[in-house]
Nucleic acid binder design. Structure first.
Lengths: 331, 331
DNA sequence: AACGTTTTCGAAAACGTTTTCGGTTGATAA
DNA sequence: TTATCAACCGAAAACGTTTTCGAAAACGTT
């Protein structure tokens, strides 16, 4: 089977030329309304489906958007992807997903695939900002627009969509101080990631500004490391305030928080979170809502804007800052 | 910029024909080793990257695999996607992701996009088995191989990869009985989904077989509905055993389980789970490990096997059953 | 030297579109 | 009647590959 019908078949059947069919199907003004109607009806009747690969080759547009992320974890990325796919679909774009596993060569490979695949744009979340610059320059050399989301780079001229890591961490620090905590632990992600450093910076600077010195900052490599470190830190000192910079770290510390609670410890927990995980826990979590869906949607929106503005330098700004608000699981 | 070099440019520079370059780059035996080497070196030097769209048009292979799922939730799907992407990447395939939002017309639309995009294969998880059959037949008409994963259809001749829902539910039922439960509640997903019905069937049949009649089965529409229903059911009767058929329902019932525990209630919880969520909870959860990563990987593996076997009817079987094992979070 | 065989290469068609450009038609105005 | 001008349609090139087929060259055998 698979008698996939093409534009030439249609033309032959209707006794017109392929160009006429093409124009009719694409609503070009060139074709008389009555003939155009005939052609469209025949196409509908025979279940004609245009071949995206062929049209992509012809007009150098693939209608593909690539998403490159370190890893598809259960934290955060599901809602980001949902936001992206939701948005771009409206405009006829499709989504390709790549994981680079915190591996630079894998990241490079993914970008090369994107180039070969002629994607129209790339949405990127990278973990090694400095080392990734060459990869990004490959994209600009190939005229492929991209936006960095969630995690940025310290460099002008790249489009970025993210929260203000620095400010949000300050707010978190301030929040714990306001709640009367005396001994505070901040749990931060891998110190090689600039996002961790930015959040650490905001946190510690706010602490100093508040004249608060009784706090520790702890960078952890991953989930498992986080689990261990919380416990170790608490062995050294009994904290009454905990800041975790992500859902993953919130999850990592949860087991320990439960055990502390059983020992009657009062612990103030504040997180930066997508907003769902906190509701699974049986202890109170205040969190700054870092909305993954919104992030995905806004990043996609920005992406399409860049792609459509021939001269994207005309766009309002390179950096789009997402708002965050303080919420609570009311645990 | 964007002086993307193509095979014709290479040919011109080297003073050979495009066919020669093409063959050299694809290791055809047609070209003398020395010339082939020259060509490859020049290609490398000038950073030549083959255009996938063009080659896709020529040989009618897109090297794209599509994944169509109801919705990218934090439960289960992240690990499934990871498993798929991990596997297909090794063989040069790329992944496109579509959500159909439990909407049949959206599902149809996604399938049409796949056809237009000439994807080489489709991985599908569908919620409305009966109503989806026409969509699936569209795929067979267009000669696009597909495999159904996680959720199947009651029909012969489609490739499926999943766990044995019926048996696993029986095991879950048996488990609760063995643990000495006297009043058992089973929380099941949307009753329109055949997966819910299959799991319900296994559960209730095993109950009857064990001569156990003091149990309720409760189908819930979604997460929020699940939260409400658990509470309502417990108002009617004090259960001491709870079966939840998915991570989502486990999450939905968690809040209530905590509150029961505080009232001193002893509750045996058994779930079908991807294996991570249980470890976030502070109560004991036994679970039958439904490994999402493995599911994704095996589905992808099967997909590639079908695509490569010209005559896929030669494959060992249509139905691939994944093993599950009983584990516990040791809460 | 003549012939057969193998190796190596290139011309051209093909994949299914879109778009440019020119030609034909019919109507309108002079 | 003729010139003008839209409106409408088609031929052909182009996008960047791969593959088929035939030609030419190189080699070996008598």
């Amino acid at each position: 089977m698979s008698n996939r019908i093409n534009i030439r078949d249609l033309a032959k059947m209707l006794g017109v030329s392929v160009s006429t069919v093409s124009k009719a199907l694409n609503d070009k003004s060139d074709i008389s309304p009555s003939l155009a109607k005939q052609i469209r009806e025949k196409a509908e009747e025979l279940n004609y489906r245009p071949n995206h690969i062929a049209s992509g080759l012809r007009n150098k547009k693939s209608k593909l958007i690539a998403l490159i992320i370190p890893e598809i974890t259960m934290y955060f990325f599901p809602s980001v992807i949902k936001g992206i796919e939701d948005h771009i679909k409206q405009f006829g774009y499709r989504l390709m997903v790549f994981q680079s596993k915190n591996d630079l060569s894998e990241e490079l490979r993914n970008i090369e695939i994107c180039i070969q695949q002629n994607v129209d744009g790339v949405l990127l979340s990278i973990t090694h900002p400095e080392n990734s610059i060459p990869h990004l320059e490959m994209l600009v050399e190939n005229d492929i627009p991209f936006v960095l989301f969630d995690k940025g780079v310290e460099r002008e001229g790249f489009f970025e969509v993210m929260i203000n890591d620095y400010n949000v961490s300050k707010m978190a620090a301030n929040h714990l101080v306001q709640r009367g905590c005396k001994r505070i632990l901040a749990l931060l992600g891998n110190s090689e990631m600039s996002i961790s450093r930015k959040r650490a910076k905001g946190f510690s600077e706010e602490m100093k500004k508040a004249g608060f010195s009784n706090f520790e900052m702890c960078f952890v490599k991953d989930f498992e490391d986080g689990k261990l470190m919380v416990e170790e830190e608490f062995k050294k000192k009994k904290f009454d305030g905990l800041f975790v910079m992500s859902d993953e770290l919130l999850a990592a510390s949860s087991k320990f928080v439960y055990s502390e609670m059983k020992n009657g410890v009062e612990l103030n927990v504040v997180a930066i979170s997508d907003g769902f995980l906190p509701h699974l826990f049986d202890f109170k979590v205040d969190y700054f809502h870092h909305d993954g869906f919104l992030l995905g949607q806004k990043s996609a929106e920005r992406m399409l804007a860049i792609m459509n503005d021939e001269n994207s330098k005309m766009l309002p700004d390179f950096y789009l800052e997402l708002e965050v608000s303080l919420k609570s699981n009311n645990g």
